[in-house]
């Protein structure tokens, strides 16, 4: 579980995060949504420890990140899996080598053990015949699946995804969303996804945190988001006619 308590982050005069508190539970897929410039990426980088908040604290299973020593932070980092917006696969390595990379860095497994584990997770993300391909030879959807495989290969306790659907067609995006949710439940990990894809919100948003101008404007589940009358949220989530109609149908069904 990750607890965020009143974090503030500024860059020069720009106050980006203005006191955000929330909790991300184990085994659940949580989404952080908001418009561009709302502070989502800075928030995610604070969670990852890439930015240090000036105020507030972030607790990983009860341990305060800022109070950890270097070894504890290093250990925590080895328990984190991250899926980047652009996949961030190492382009000098094959797909198999990319997936094996965290194992090579953090475990003492033999080569065959690492290959077996990498093979297993590649199968889990439905990539069975791509082991020896270079990342440049893989499609966007395949690259995202390799990135997920790399993120989960070392059995992380926390999984972070930065806009995992960007640049993907709607069908592949749903496959990726469902894959992340399945893996979260299967391995009982704490998953936080940065997104502004409303399909993801409706599909997998077990918990949704809505940021606006560096503040938490709303939080709840995908079921609650249909019912909320918070104008800031409805303006953003139901900005398209399609989602307006979906919401209308949902509310009519309920009445």
């Amino acid at each position: 579980m990750i607890e965020v308590k009143n974090i503030h982050k500024s860059f020069g005069d720009a106050h980006i995060l203005k006191g955000i508190s929330t909790t991300f539970e184990k085994g659940k897929t949580s989404l952080v949504i908001g418009q561009s410039g709302s502070g989502k990426t800075v928030f995610l980088k604070c969670l990852l420890g890439l930015f240090q908040p000036e105020e507030g604290s972030i607790l990983y299973d009860g341990s305060i990140y800022s109070e950890m020593n270097t070894d504890q932070k290093r250990h925590l980092r080895s328990e984190i899996g991250m899926v980047f917006q652009g996949s961030a696969l190492f382009d000098s390595m094959t797909i198999l080598e990319n997936v094996m990379f965290p194992l090579r860095m953090f475990t003492k497994q033999s080569k065959s053990e690492m290959e077996d584990r990498a093979d297993f997770v590649l199968k889990r993300v439905n990539l069975e015949d791509a082991h020896n391909k270079m990342p440049s030879e893989a499609s966007g959807g395949m690259q995202k699946r390799v990135a997920i495989a790399r993120a989960i290969v070392n059995k992380p306790k926390y999984l972070f995804c930065d806009e995992p659907n960007s640049g993907l067609d709607p069908k592949t995006a749903i496959v990726i969303d469902n894959l992340i949710q399945e893996i979260t439940e299967e391995y009982n990990i704490t998953t936080v996804i940065n997104s502004h894809d409303m399909n993801s919100v409706m599909e997998i948003g077990e918990k949704i945190v809505f940021l606006k101008d560096g503040l938490k404007a709303w939080e709840g589940s995908k079921e609650n988001i249909f019912k909320t009358d918070n104008e800031v949220v409805t303006d953003f989530v139901y900005s398209s006619e399609l989602f307006k109609k979906v919401r209308q149908m949902y509310l009519e069904e309920r009445h």
Binding site: L48, R74, L76, S78, F84, G86, A88, F90, D91
Partner: peptide, 17 residues
């Protein structure tokens, strides 16, 4: 530089490398 642009360096840092 290309590794920086494509977030590969961020990926290394997130892993604690």
């Amino acid at each position: 530089g290309t590794m920086r642009v494509t977030e590969q360096i961020d990926a290394l840092e997130v892993m604690g490398i």
